[in-house]
Design a protein around this nucleic acid. Structure first.
Lengths: 211, 211, 211, 211
DNA sequence: GATGAATGAGGATTCATTCAT
DNA sequence: CATGAATGAATCCTCATTCAT
């Protein structure tokens, strides 16, 4: 019985993982049930034993990605409970790293055409918003402690999100100038993004201080 | 003869324009030669008189988008020839506006999976890089005039690009929190992005100055 | 043990009944083992414990329908043992009513394409013919008693059968003119069908007498 | 140009004809685009050049069948313009013959499950009703001339239709007793059906007169 | 310059059935 | 008694593309 369930779960996992790999290597557009089946060495029909439809499979993947991302951000926030600014930096870094490490989640989570994603149940998007909340909360806490200068935490978090998301996107797109060092780019994005929110310590020269 | 040629050109244009509209309304995934043909009232075969393949058609569109974007940015730069900082702000604003105004170009220019775009001749990408150069040049000029604090203009330009690109992406994705005001979001992105490069004028409080 | 057997029988029954319901609601074409299984809350495999194949299941249903129909007609005949003409009328009415009340039996008994039914063992068809015999016997008895005018009882029974079957078919097909009252239609079919067999009583005006 | 059109039309015709043949040999249920394509020696895709969908193809066939049937009945009515009773008999015979000669039309016109036919545009059904009108008109004319005894022409026509339809159905179903002679059966159905409407000539014995 | 005809490959999905448990 | 896992074959239909005209 337990073995069955493990077998069962195994195939489901393999489907999800294979799908993720295909998303990375070929993109969402050319994702097909047949290709997934071929890649795992099963018949296409078998996939339907575990997922009701292609949409359901992709949705499961999106949910998984969002959950993992939330877990990542949440644990980063926890690790830097004491230092708001360090926490914020770590969250930014974590966000970008998550994108780099999980390009497949990234692609389906943020890069699908809205038309295609309309079918993703609204309720699940609501849950996805938790990810942003982690940053919102940090900004709010920093503002209260006079460590951060934040007018509207939600707007600011969204703007930060935009910058991080853009960075990940560009890294994926292979359209960046090859002369740009990857690490320097990431550092620059983060410092550029956060500096405007960090209240400069007494006597500091805003133009020079490094984040 | 001339009329024919104009007709000819007209059809080519109509194909391109119709394709752009379809890209906006239905997304790249569901773009098909047949649909384009149906939309312009010609046979699918006719498209092949003007474009070698679907790829060629999309590539032409990408090139067109890049050219238009370059033209937009270039003329913005020109209009603010005297004031580097105003120029930089205007370029950022122009970048985002271009994305908002031309979602179809944006979709195929930056949001296609690299796999699909691999077929886009490398040489054309090189030309596309001119867009970044406009920002690079501005940063360099600002740095020389001690108006901007820029360590590596190429990296900084890439980071700025990332932020702007991320902003446009999010605006398209319809995944942004509805409570976030669009204009406030855009303003925040731009100020957040540029503030770290602008050398603070004497006596200014970095945390409060508006970009 | 007895309970098991009852359970066993219960499932078999539930399969048959559910199949009948599905036949009514969705038609033979879209009948599938999976749907049946889903509807009874068992796995598709379980159906195979009770029926060798889909064909076997349908055949069982056909047999059941024929048996029930026979029982219905037989008991009608019995109830009108004394009056041949009343018996004949009642049989016609009973035939049509059975069709109306059991559309699912009707659909699989008479409306499947012969090709699909070829697989129904010939021997079972022979048994099915008993249904016609009830009418044949009645006609023969009426002819012997000079109450009915019947040249060839088998042919006449077949013709009556045709009329009744046609009536049921049309009622099902939803292609009948909506202005036609259902009851009037049925009455007309029956009187139209039987009048030509009934020997007119002395002095009666054939054109006016009601059957 | 003209040749093209003929070619074009030819394939369309061949598709329709092949579909009709398949309907006869295998029934609607097992009709598939692939089988049709295989039978005509074309790719399945080609069928879609002439018919938008499988439904559209079947609908075209239904319409064609209804038109042909109407033409058949109409010309029969015309041929017996003078003699109402002869006309009625001829219409019945024509109805049955049409069914026998065109089993494929018959199958899709009257034997599809309503569920499946729901997709047939209602407007076309209205046109189909013309077929019944031919009989209704004849009955009405006969009633006016005191040649037929008809209470409600629409109901009577429907009842006649039922009998004829039932006869054709049974002939197709291959469920009729083999000892029944086909011609005798048909004659019996018709005389049985019409006798009740025909006003008996003076002195005739209703039980004996042949229709 | 324009098109109708044609197709092979592939898309998602459903089906009846088998087998080991 | 019951089932989960698995599949090959089939379903309709769409696609980009070619070719002769």
């Amino acid at each position: 019985m337990e073995e069955k369930q493990r077998m069962n779960g195994d195939l489901r996992r393999r489907i999800l993982d294979t799908t993720r790999h295909l998303l990375v290597s070929e993109g969402y557009n050319s994702l097909s049930m047949r290709k997934i089946a071929r890649a795992i060495g099963y018949s296409a029909t078998s996939i339907y034993l575990h997922f009701e439809s292609k949409d359901a499979l992709v949705h499961a993947l999106i949910e998984e990605g969002m959950a993992q991302k939330y877990e990542t951000l949440r644990s980063i926030a926890e690790a830097h409970r004491e230092d708001v600014i360090a926490r914020l930096k770590a969250l930014c870094r974590g966000y970008i790293d998550f994108g780099i490490d999980n390009p497949e989640y990234y692609e389906i989570m943020y890069m699908l055409h809205p038309e295609q994603m309309a079918r993703f149940p609204a309720e699940k998007y609501r849950r996805a918003r938790r990810n942003l909340e982690v940053i919102v909360d940090t900004l709010r806490e920093g503002a209260e402690g006079k460590l951060l200068y934040v007018e509207d935490p939600l707007v600011a978090a969204s703007a930060i999100w935009a910058a991080l998301h853009g960075a990940v996107s560009l890294l994926f797109s292979r359209r960046m100038d090859v002369r740009v060092d990857r690490e320097a780019f990431i550092d620059t994005v983060i410092s550029q993004t956060l500096r405007s929110y960090i209240v400069a310590p007494e006597g500091a020269d805003a133009g020079v201080s490094t984040v």
